[in-house]
Design a protein around this nucleic acid. Structure first.
Lengths: 131, 131
DNA sequence: TTCCTTGCAAATCGTTTGCATAATG
DNA sequence: CATTATGCAAACGATTTGCAAGGAA
């Protein structure tokens, strides 16, 4: 039960904090593997699960079949580009009011929601628009 | 390229139309297997993929690691109970305006969004409230 | 010394796919 | 007859897990 610190967990957490994209377990693994050749993928998964269970990171599922991880746990929304797959943080106002909208004719209790947006990212939009 | 009708595809589609929950491929398979013992899981998956690619059904991913399918393709939102896992349609106003909110300070193009709500369903809420 | 964590490999689970045969148009 | 769809089983890819050895408290 008691958590003991581990070099690996710290590596993973700080790697994640240093990135603005939202890497998958495998990307995290192959990057860190270079500075620590003994690192194993199982350890990466175990720690990502541990960190997200503790609420220190977010596990994002956007339907591409792979989990993405984010060290930024503050409220924010994501955008996924359907052309290049890039995964971007959106700077936008809160849309928490949709929970009230959802609850208007619902007898249960709405505690949260998962929302992400998709479309064409700025870079791909530019390419598509070029003459 | 040309689509040929198949008894199996029709079974699957009508089974799905007759349910208000949002069964997984495996649930669909085990139910239909009873009336057609030769049915194979591969066929179920192939047809579900085909039907959702054609837009006749929806493939829903709510982060539980399993795909759910819905024959109702009209715009509507879902609720997932974190206690019992039930998967319910919400009768609620459109929240498409969140796409404008998201686009305000974003240079790309937002084409859509995925949103689902979670919390405690009416039945579980009742149980929790009972004295 | 206790017991949490790792590395490694094997196991799981949902989903996809190759191939020979059956069904459709 | 030309082709699409099926059943079956093997293949896949992401994630999890059992176990013996290593490391933190």
């Amino acid at each position: 039960m008691a958590l003991k610190r581990s070099r690996q967990r710290e590596m993973i957490k700080s790697f994640l904090m240093g990135r603005k994209d939202h890497p998958t377990a495998d990307v995290i693994y192959s990057n860190l593997k270079q500075q620590d050749p003994k690192l194993s993928l199982g350890t990466v998964y175990r720690n990502l699960t541990l960190l997200s269970d503790m609420g220190e990171i977010l596990r994002l599922r956007v339907g591409d079949g792979v989990d993405h991880f984010d060290a930024d746990t503050s409220e924010h929304y994501h955008f996924v580009c359907t052309e290049c797959g890039s995964f971007i943080d959106l700077d936008m106002d809160s849309i928490d009011s949709i929970m009230e909208t959802a609850g208007e004719r619902f007898d249960g209790r709405i505690r949260g929601h998962v929302t992400y947006f998709y479309g064409t990212c700025p870079a791909c939009t530019r390419v598509a628009t070029e003459s």
